[in-house]
Design a protein around this nucleic acid. Sequence first.
DNA 1: AGGTTAAGCTACGCATGCGTATCTCAGCAA
DNA 2: TTGCTGAGATACGCATGCGTAGCTTAACCT
Lengths: 194, 194
Amino acid sequence: MTGRSRRRGEELVAALHEAALAELDAVGLGRLTMEGIARRAGTPKTTLYRRWSAPEDVLLDAIAAAYPLEEPSPAADDLRGDLIAALRLLIAWSRHPTVRAVQAIMLERHRRPDLVERLQGVFDRRGRRFTATVLRHYARLGQIDPALVTPVVEEIGEALVFKIAFDTGEEPSEALLAEIVDQAILPAVGFRPG
Amino acid sequence: MTGRSRRRGEELVAALHEAALAELDAVGLGRLTMEGIARRAGTPKTTLYRRWSAPEDVLLDAIAAAYPLEEPSPAADDLRGDLIAALRLLIAWSRHPTVRAVQAIMLERHRRPDLVERLQGVFDRRGRRFTATVLRHYARLGQIDPALVTPVVEEIGEALVFKIAFDTGEEPSEALLAEIVDQAILPAVGFRPG
DNA sequence: AGGTTAAGCTACGCATGCGTATCTCAGCAA
DNA sequence: TTGCTGAGATACGCATGCGTAGCTTAACCT
C-alpha cells in the first residue's frame, strides 16, 4: 500500500540532496523550504527533520557531497587555445547544480552572511581558478612576463564570462570566448591586440 | 486616535515606493510581500491594494519612478583618469536602491522572465554605459584605435568591478580601480602594460 | 460649510510552511 | 526467526501572507 519500495541510507540521502538542489533552482534560496524539499523528494518531512533542522542545512550538505573541483590542464603549447579551453571549462563547471547553489548563496551574501561563513568550511572557497591556471603555467614556461599575471588579470576572463551571462541570460558562445581571449586577456599579458 | 497625520497622493506613493525598495533589500525578491511592504510603510494593506495587486507591481513602479540615468562626462584630456572616474561613477550608481532592485530582478531572470520583460518597458535596459562612454570619446578624438573599442572591450571594466564586488562582498577600492584600468582596460585599447 | 474621496483600522476565511507527535511496517542483522 | 531501526503516512496547533470586507474619519474640493 506504501506504493514503492523503501529507500534507506545513502540512497535516500542522495535523493534528498538532489531534491534540495532541484528545489533551489525552482524556487530560489529565499523560498527554499523543508516542505518543498520533502515534497519534491517524495518523502515525509519527518525523514528530513531526522537529519537536518533547516533547509539551508540540507543544501550545505548537498554542496559538500558533490562540489566539483575540475581544473584546466594546459598541455599543448598553445596559450590562446588553452585560455579558450579554460573558459569553456568554467562554463561547463558552472552548469553543475552545486555550483549554482554556491552562487545563489554568495548572491545573498549581505542578507545571510552566516551561510557564506558555513560555506567556507565546506571547501576553501575563492572561486576555482580557470584562466589563472593557464596563465601561471605559461608564465612559468617564460612565455609570459610573470609580472603581468596580476590578480586583476587573472580575473579578466571569468569576469567577462559572468558579466555576459548575467546581461544576456545565456552562456557566451564559442565565438565570444575567442573574442574575450583575443581582445581582453591576451593584450593584458603583453600580446598586442590585432 | 489614529496616531499621526494622514498621508495622501504623491507623498504616500513615494513612501510606499521607498518601503518596497527597503523591503526588497531586507528580505529579497523571493520574499517580497504585500504584508511586508505595508507593514514597513506603516499603512494598511488596503491602501496598497487600491493601487497595485502584487508586490512586484509596487517594485516596478518604484523603479520607474526613480531610476537614475547618470553618464560619465569625459572632459579632461586624461584617458586614464576618466576611466577611473567612470568606474567610480559605476560604483556610486550601483548603490542606488532602484539599481539594486533591477539587479535583483535580473538575477532571477530564469525564474521570473515575466519581470525582466516588464522591466524593458520601464527603460531601454542594457546596463548604462560607463567606461564605454569614455572609450568612445577618446576613440572619436583619435587617441584610441576605434577598431579596438569592441563590445567585449567596453565591458572589461564593468565586468571586473562586478566580479570583485561579488567575490569579496565589498566595493573595489580606489587602488583596485586603478589596477583594473592599468592592467586590463588600457592594454586592451593598445597601451602596453607597465 | 458641506460633500466627496480615500487613508486608516480591524477583521475575516483560506492556504501554506512550521515543528512535532503518532502509528505502521519494510529493511536489515543477530 | 525475531527484533530493532527508521522510512513512510497522517494529523495537529501555530504563524504568516493572501485578498476582501466593513467601518470611521482626516484631508481636500467646491
